[in-house]
């Protein structure tokens, strides 16, 4: 009934560009969580920032996709286009895809983040332990023994999506969101993340960090970024309180 494919542009089987409305478009490298693809996404974003164009308003980076928000009117006016602004944007995204460096240079420094896994903060530790049939201590140990990659920041200001947690503690999110305190560290599927603000959330909470992930009036309100390597380390309740 609808010819949807007319709107889509495939570079190859793994890269598609599609509209996200009439003022936004997405370049998608595949529906998977993969370090290489995420690195490519970051490189595409960097290239677009360096080679910005009139009418480019925002760049959203996710696990394996880059979306841009643009002003079709400004683009048409500035570049005197016979074609649509969407076609112009497709070309820009393709250029970014092809020009962004293919070198894979992951971050080497590991950022460490303290987490207090006390049951007072880790509301769902017992639930995870029971579901996974392992002791609470093992859940905690598995969570902080791995180095994670920060894939994307989204959902809320400063909310970092990191992956992948050990399969033994991977657990689906809650059916219904519950109130969550800022600094709470949670698990959803194979992802782990930190809530930067008090808000309703569905991730299974294992602990809390005293570190502020989002400070609206700091020079840089969000200090972490996509591509960072993150490792958690356990602290006691006393250390947590002294850190606050």
């Amino acid at each position: 009934m609808l010819n949807l494919t007319a709107y889509h542009f495939s570079l190859n089987s793994d890269c598609t560009i599609f509209p996200l409305g009439d003022s936004s478009a997405t370049l998608d490298l595949g529906n998977i969580v993969n370090e290489g693809l995420n690195q490519k996404v970051i490189e595409i974003k960097n290239w677009l920032q360096k080679n910005s164009f009139e009418g480019l308003k925002d760049i959203i980076i996710a696990y394996s996709s880059v979306s841009i928000v643009y002003d079709p009117f400004l683009i048409k006016e500035r570049y005197q286009l016979p074609a649509s602004a969407f076609e112009f944007v497709i070309d820009k995204l393709l250029e970014a895809f092809e020009s962004a460096t293919r070198e894979y240079k992951p971050d080497e420094d590991i950022i460490t983040i303290p987490v207090c896994y006390d049951e007072m903060f880790g509301n769902d530790l017992k639930f995870i332990a029971a579901q996974k049939n392992i002791p609470v201590e093992k859940v905690i140990e598995l969570h902080h023994s791995k180095t994670y990659r920060l894939y994307m920041i989204g959902f809320l200001p400063g909310f970092s999506y990191m992956a992948e947690v050990d399969e033994q503690i991977a657990i689906p999110r809650k059916q219904k969101p519950v109130p969550v305190i800022a600094g709470s560290v949670g698990i959803a599927g194979s992802q782990t993340g930190i809530y930067p603000l008090n808000c309703p959330g569905g991730w299974q909470i294992v602990g809390r960090t005293p570190i502020k992930l989002f400070e609206p009036f700091a020079d840089s309100p969000v200090k972490l970024k996509s591509g960072n390597l993150i490792k958690f380390y356990p602290i006691t309740k006393e250390e947590f309180e002294n850190n606050y």
């Binding site: 996200l20 959203i60 996710a62 696990y63 394996s64 928000v69």
Partner: peptide, 12 residues
């Protein structure tokens, strides 16, 4: 099917 998170827009 499961989708991983990606960008959304006003009007999506």
């Amino acid at each position: 099917f499961e989708l991983i998170s990606s960008g959304v827009n006003f009007g999506t």
